[in-house]
Simulated scan of single mutants.
Amino acid sequence: MPTVHVRLSQRVPETLAPELMKRLFFAASSIEEFQLFTEDGSVVGVELTLNSADSAGVAEKIDRVVAEQVLTQRPLAPRSVWESPVVRSEFTDAFPELLAQDTVVVSGEGQVGFAEPLISLFGYLDRRLRAIALSLEGAREYQYPTLLPTSVLDRFGYFGSFPQFPMFVTRLHNDIDVYADFVERYREEQRVPDDLFAHCSNTDYCLPPTMCYHSFHQYQGRELAGGSVITARGKSFRYESRYHTSLERLWDFTIREIVFMGTPEFAAECRNSVMRQTFALMEELELAGGCEVANDHFFANADTAGKILSQRMMELKFEPLLPVAADRSIAVGSFNLHGHFFGESFDIKGPDGGPVASGCVGFGLERLGHAFLSQHGSDPARWPTAVAQEIG
């Protein structure tokens, strides 16, 4: 595959480099890998590995991403709200060993299955997070179906802000002629026809990009007598354009979600309580890391920069970041406040008749497990005593 160096038309401050990195794979489908190049505190170029020879077209798209989605943002210094006392200088890439042992199996792009001891490890991590959720007053646990009505995401404009993530669930038209034509062509070609979706029209359902939307849908049009806390564990799906063979970033992943609705003070106190307990848990698990102010990965439109700045300035989103290598950390969850946005979008009212405020906390169990394995290794004998004793 060709490798090309693209010189950016405009310099990108290093403080905005993470925003550029989030978006590069979505700039063009021909980008397989990339590496940023810096000069005097700015990103000045990108080395690309491409699966096609159209480097000029890709360079133009990257310049558009820089101009429309990155440089419109205001650089802000990172702000940390927690730092683990645990310090690590050595890390393990456990995935190759787990793969060789048949402990993990790669089922497809961004899809990984796993056996013991990972089943028990991830189960243990979830039990600890679930206990934090259920420690909140009035908390109730639900199990939701996988499919989410597309109309739920429509209610608050998800597709206009995150068009890069959704995956729709569809089916063939319920028409005998369509079925007959499909079967005939499949038998002739011995594969699914290239124009399959011309015979599909149903887009009423999609795969959930996160679990909290199930909860807001559940409470749509209702009036709450007081504060409510809901927790659920379930599968979520987010298309990330490129996947490496690891547990770090998956297309099909598991989230432990906690949603709280009530007054702004109630939502803030719930989030703060979960944050405090989570930091204590990370320290108990002997994990190095920290927690910083963050923002969502909005797709560029007229108000993107304002959304990101507002989210960061008001500290509506924090992310716990755990190192998985000497020079790299990953977010294993997020702690969020929404204001009245979802209360208004889903017509959820409080005792005063006005829209409730809300917040949510979500943990990617596979990502948290990946960070744990990167710091402690794949041998349970080396894991913290509390974990090893719990899972046997």
Score class of each variant (00 low, 15 high):
residue 186 Y to T: 15
residue 120 S to C: 04
residue 4 V to T: 15
residue 81 V to A: 02
residue 157 G to M: 08
residue 30 S to M: 06
residue 154 D to R: 12
residue 168 F to C: 10
residue 333 G to F: 04
residue 290 G to E: 06
residue 88 R to S: 01
residue 167 M to K: 09
residue 254 T to Q: 13
residue 151 S to T: 13
residue 290 G to P: 00
residue 189 E to D: 12
residue 62 I to T: 07
residue 266 F to E: 00
residue 213 Y to A: 06
residue 176 I to G: 12
residue 117 P to C: 06
residue 227 G to D: 04
residue 176 I to S: 14
residue 64 R to F: 13
residue 264 P to R: 02
residue 9 S to N: 11
residue 78 P to T: 03
residue 86 V to T: 09
residue 244 H to Q: 14
residue 31 I to N: 08
residue 317 K to S: 06
residue 194 D to F: 13
residue 106 V to T: 07
residue 230 I to G: 01
residue 291 C to T: 05
residue 22 K to L: 14
residue 226 G to A: 11
residue 341 F to H: 10
residue 217 H to K: 12
residue 124 Y to E: 03
residue 9 S to E: 15
residue 302 A to Y: 11
residue 182 F to L: 12
residue 145 P to H: 09
residue 280 A to N: 07
residue 205 Y to F: 15
residue 20 L to A: 11
residue 224 L to M: 05
residue 143 Q to P: 00
residue 349 K to C: 04
residue 115 A to I: 00
residue 381 A to L: 13
residue 184 E to F: 10
residue 160 G to C: 09
residue 297 H to N: 15
residue 146 T to V: 15
residue 261 M to Y: 01
residue 26 F to K: 05
residue 267 A to D: 02
residue 89 S to E: 12
residue 391 I to L: 13
residue 55 S to P: 03
residue 281 L to W: 03
residue 361 V to E: 03
residue 141 E to F: 07
residue 356 V to E: 01
residue 264 P to E: 06
residue 192 V to F: 10
residue 274 V to G: 01
residue 188 E to F: 00
residue 61 K to W: 06
residue 362 G to V: 08
residue 281 L to R: 04
residue 262 G to Y: 00
residue 390 E to R: 07
residue 304 T to F: 01
residue 357 A to D: 07
residue 193 P to F: 11
residue 198 A to K: 12
residue 15 T to L: 15
residue 31 I to K: 10
residue 124 Y to L: 11
residue 318 F to K: 01
residue 228 S to V: 14
residue 272 N to G: 10
residue 98 L to I: 01
residue 321 L to W: 03
residue 91 F to T: 02
residue 188 E to Y: 02
residue 146 T to P: 03
residue 296 D to Y: 10
residue 369 G to K: 00
residue 273 S to E: 07
residue 108 G to V: 08
residue 269 E to W: 01
residue 215 S to N: 08
residue 219 Y to D: 08
residue 66 V to Q: 07
residue 147 L to N: 09
residue 279 F to D: 05
residue 27 A to W: 05
residue 327 D to Q: 08
residue 51 N to E: 12
residue 84 S to M: 04
residue 357 A to P: 00
residue 25 F to D: 12
residue 353 G to E: 02
residue 24 L to H: 09
residue 249 R to A: 08
residue 344 E to I: 04
residue 320 P to Y: 05
residue 163 P to S: 14
residue 158 Y to D: 09
residue 212 C to I: 08
residue 271 R to H: 05
residue 281 L to T: 04
residue 69 Q to I: 05
residue 172 L to N: 09
residue 236 S to V: 13
residue 94 A to K: 00
residue 306 G to R: 14
residue 89 S to Y: 03
residue 68 E to Y: 07
residue 164 Q to P: 12
residue 325 A to K: 06
residue 201 S to A: 10
residue 319 E to P: 03
residue 66 V to A: 09
residue 141 E to S: 11
